[in-house]
Protein backbone atom coordinates (compact mmCIF):
# COMPACT_ATOMS: atom_id res chain seq x y z
CA UNK A 1 0.00 0.00 0.00
CA UNK A 2 1.25 3.45 -0.81
CA UNK A 3 2.21 5.63 2.10
CA UNK A 4 0.55 8.99 2.74
CA UNK A 5 3.69 10.71 1.55
CA UNK A 6 3.61 8.81 -1.74
CA UNK A 7 0.04 9.84 -2.32
CA UNK A 8 0.69 13.44 -1.38
CA UNK A 9 3.61 13.50 -3.75
CA UNK A 10 1.45 12.12 -6.55
CA UNK A 11 -1.30 14.60 -5.86
CA UNK A 12 0.62 17.75 -5.14
CA UNK A 13 4.20 17.56 -6.28
CA UNK A 14 6.29 17.47 -9.35
CA UNK A 15 5.43 13.79 -9.89
CA UNK A 16 2.12 14.89 -11.24
CA UNK A 17 3.90 16.92 -13.84
CA UNK A 18 6.39 14.25 -14.75
CA UNK A 19 6.17 12.37 -18.00
CA UNK A 20 6.17 9.01 -16.21
CA UNK A 21 2.69 7.45 -16.65
CA UNK A 22 0.84 6.59 -13.44
CA UNK A 23 -0.33 2.98 -13.04
CA UNK A 24 -4.13 3.09 -12.84
CA UNK A 25 -4.82 -0.58 -12.20
CA UNK A 26 -7.92 -1.35 -10.11
CA UNK A 27 -6.18 -2.69 -6.94
CA UNK A 28 -3.85 0.23 -6.89
CA UNK A 29 -6.74 2.69 -7.16
CA UNK A 30 -8.61 1.03 -4.27
CA UNK A 31 -5.52 1.28 -2.07
CA UNK A 32 -5.11 4.90 -3.00
CA UNK A 33 -8.75 5.61 -2.24
CA UNK A 34 -8.37 4.04 1.22
CA UNK A 35 -5.26 6.07 1.88
CA UNK A 36 -6.97 9.22 0.70
CA UNK A 37 -9.94 8.50 2.99
CA UNK A 38 -7.55 8.09 5.93
CA UNK A 39 -5.89 11.37 5.06
CA UNK A 40 -9.21 13.18 4.82
CA UNK A 41 -10.30 11.64 8.13
CA UNK A 42 -7.17 12.90 9.84
CA UNK A 43 -7.51 16.35 8.35
CA UNK A 44 -11.15 16.42 9.47
CA UNK A 45 -10.34 15.40 13.04
CA UNK A 46 -7.57 17.99 13.16
CA UNK A 47 -9.99 20.67 11.96
CA UNK A 48 -12.49 19.55 14.61
CA UNK A 49 -9.87 19.80 17.33
CA UNK A 50 -8.96 23.27 16.07
CA UNK A 51 -12.58 24.32 16.26
CA UNK A 52 -12.90 22.98 19.79
CA UNK A 53 -9.64 24.33 21.13
CA UNK A 54 -9.70 26.76 23.98
CA UNK A 55 -8.03 30.02 23.20
CA UNK A 56 -6.47 30.09 26.63
CA UNK A 57 -4.48 26.98 25.71
CA UNK A 58 -2.37 29.21 23.51
CA UNK A 59 -1.07 30.93 26.58
CA UNK A 60 -0.44 27.91 28.71
CA UNK A 61 3.19 27.45 27.85
CA UNK A 62 3.80 31.08 28.83
CA UNK A 63 1.29 31.22 31.62
CA UNK A 64 2.94 28.85 34.01
CA UNK A 65 5.96 26.74 34.44
CA UNK A 66 5.34 23.72 36.58
CA UNK A 67 9.06 23.18 37.08
CA UNK A 68 9.36 26.47 38.93
CA UNK A 69 7.58 27.76 42.01
CA UNK A 70 4.41 29.64 41.19
CA UNK A 71 4.98 32.41 43.69
CA UNK A 72 7.77 34.70 42.59
CA UNK A 73 9.18 38.04 43.55
CA UNK A 74 7.85 40.19 40.75
CA UNK A 75 6.68 43.75 41.07
CA UNK A 76 2.95 43.18 40.95
CA UNK A 77 1.66 46.66 40.14
CA UNK A 78 -1.97 47.16 41.00
CA UNK A 79 -2.45 50.09 38.62
CA UNK A 80 -0.79 51.07 35.39
CA UNK A 81 -1.60 54.27 33.57
CA UNK A 82 -0.18 55.52 30.28
CA UNK A 83 0.02 59.14 29.23
CA UNK A 84 0.74 60.40 25.75
CA UNK A 85 2.94 63.47 26.02
CA UNK A 86 5.04 65.92 24.05
CA UNK A 87 8.09 67.84 25.14
CA UNK A 88 7.28 71.54 25.46
CA UNK A 89 10.48 72.85 26.93
CA UNK A 90 13.88 71.57 27.98
CA UNK A 91 15.18 73.41 31.05
CA UNK A 92 18.43 73.17 32.99
CA UNK A 93 17.34 70.36 35.28
CA UNK A 94 13.76 69.64 34.26
CA UNK A 95 11.71 68.76 31.22
CA UNK A 96 8.29 70.26 30.71
CA UNK A 97 5.77 67.90 29.14
CA UNK A 98 2.34 68.48 27.70
CA UNK A 99 0.40 65.40 28.84
CA UNK A 100 -2.88 64.07 27.51
CA UNK A 101 -4.63 63.21 30.77
CA UNK A 102 -8.13 62.57 29.44
CA UNK A 103 -8.26 61.10 25.95
CA UNK A 104 -12.03 61.15 25.57
CA UNK A 105 -12.43 64.78 26.56
CA UNK A 106 -9.09 65.88 25.07
CA UNK A 107 -7.82 67.34 28.33
CA UNK A 108 -4.15 68.21 28.59
CA UNK A 109 -2.00 69.25 31.54
CA UNK A 110 1.62 70.29 31.73
CA UNK A 111 3.99 68.42 34.03
CA UNK A 112 7.60 68.88 35.08
CA UNK A 113 9.93 65.90 35.21
CA UNK A 114 13.51 65.54 36.34
CA UNK A 115 15.78 65.81 33.31
CA UNK A 116 17.81 62.76 34.34
CA UNK A 117 14.79 60.56 33.59
CA UNK A 118 15.16 61.40 29.91
CA UNK A 119 18.74 60.31 29.32
CA UNK A 120 17.44 57.21 27.53
CA UNK A 121 15.60 59.32 24.96
CA UNK A 122 17.60 59.82 21.80
CA UNK A 123 17.45 63.21 20.11
CA UNK A 124 15.50 64.91 22.90
CA UNK A 125 14.08 68.24 21.77
CA UNK A 126 10.91 70.31 22.01
CA UNK A 127 8.11 68.62 20.11
CA UNK A 128 9.40 65.09 20.75
CA UNK A 129 6.65 62.62 21.60
CA UNK A 130 6.95 60.73 24.88
CA UNK A 131 4.98 57.90 26.47
CA UNK A 132 4.89 58.28 30.24
CA UNK A 133 3.97 55.11 32.11
CA UNK A 134 2.95 55.29 35.76
CA UNK A 135 3.01 52.12 37.86
CA UNK A 136 1.38 52.11 41.27
CA UNK A 137 0.95 49.78 44.18
CA UNK A 138 0.25 50.49 47.84
CA UNK A 139 3.18 52.54 49.16
CA UNK A 140 5.02 52.70 45.86
CA UNK A 141 4.90 54.59 42.58
CA UNK A 142 7.18 54.31 39.58
CA UNK A 143 7.47 56.29 36.35
CA UNK A 144 9.01 55.22 33.10
CA UNK A 145 9.80 57.68 30.33
CA UNK A 146 9.70 56.14 26.87
CA UNK A 147 10.17 57.26 23.31
CA UNK A 148 6.63 57.78 22.05
CA UNK A 149 7.31 58.51 18.40
CA UNK A 150 5.70 55.24 17.28
CA UNK A 151 3.13 54.94 20.05
CA UNK A 152 1.66 58.36 20.69
CA UNK A 153 -1.31 59.28 18.53
CA UNK A 154 -0.06 62.61 17.19
CA UNK A 155 -3.51 63.61 15.98
CA UNK A 156 -4.47 64.31 19.59
CA UNK A 157 -1.83 67.01 19.78
CA UNK A 158 -2.97 68.81 16.67
CA UNK A 159 -5.09 71.93 17.18
CA UNK A 160 -4.07 71.87 20.81
CA UNK A 161 -4.50 75.06 22.90
CA UNK A 162 -1.51 77.30 23.40
CA UNK A 163 0.88 75.87 25.99
CA UNK A 164 1.10 79.16 27.83
CA UNK A 165 -2.53 78.80 28.88
CA UNK A 166 -1.63 75.80 30.97
CA UNK A 167 1.37 77.24 32.79
CA UNK A 168 -0.55 77.83 36.02
CA UNK A 169 -0.96 74.11 36.68
CA UNK A 170 2.48 73.00 35.67
CA UNK A 171 3.69 72.10 39.15
CA UNK A 172 0.96 69.61 39.89
CA UNK A 173 1.93 65.97 39.96
CA UNK A 174 0.25 63.22 38.05
CA UNK A 175 -2.15 61.31 40.25
Amino acid sequence: MSSDKDLQRKLFSEDLMSSEPYDFDEDNIQDEVKTAKNLIGRVYSELQSNINFKYSELFEKDASSKSQPLVGVNENWSKIKNYDARVIEIRKSTIKLDCLVDRENKKFQTRLFDKSLFTNIHDLKAGKYILVRVFKKPGKISFTINNGEKLVDKRNFENHPEFSDLDDIEHKTID
Binding site: S64, K66, G72, N74
Partner: peptide
Protein backbone atom coordinates in the same frame (compact mmCIF):
# COMPACT_ATOMS: atom_id res chain seq x y z
CA UNK B 1 -4.00 28.14 41.09
CA UNK B 2 -3.18 25.13 38.98
CA UNK B 3 -6.78 24.06 38.43
CA UNK B 4 -7.69 27.42 36.87
CA UNK B 5 -4.20 28.26 35.63
CA UNK B 6 -4.15 31.41 37.76
CA UNK B 7 -0.55 32.18 37.01
CA UNK B 8 1.52 33.96 34.44
CA UNK B 9 5.23 33.71 33.76
CA UNK B 10 6.43 32.09 36.98
CA UNK B 11 4.19 33.65 39.56
CA UNK B 12 0.62 33.22 40.65
CA UNK B 13 -2.21 35.73 40.84
CA UNK B 14 -1.80 35.49 44.63
CA UNK B 15 1.75 36.81 44.60
CA UNK B 16 0.84 39.87 46.61
CA UNK B 17 0.85 39.09 50.35
CA UNK B 18 -2.30 41.15 50.74
Amino acid sequence: IEQHNLSLFNYSAFVDDE
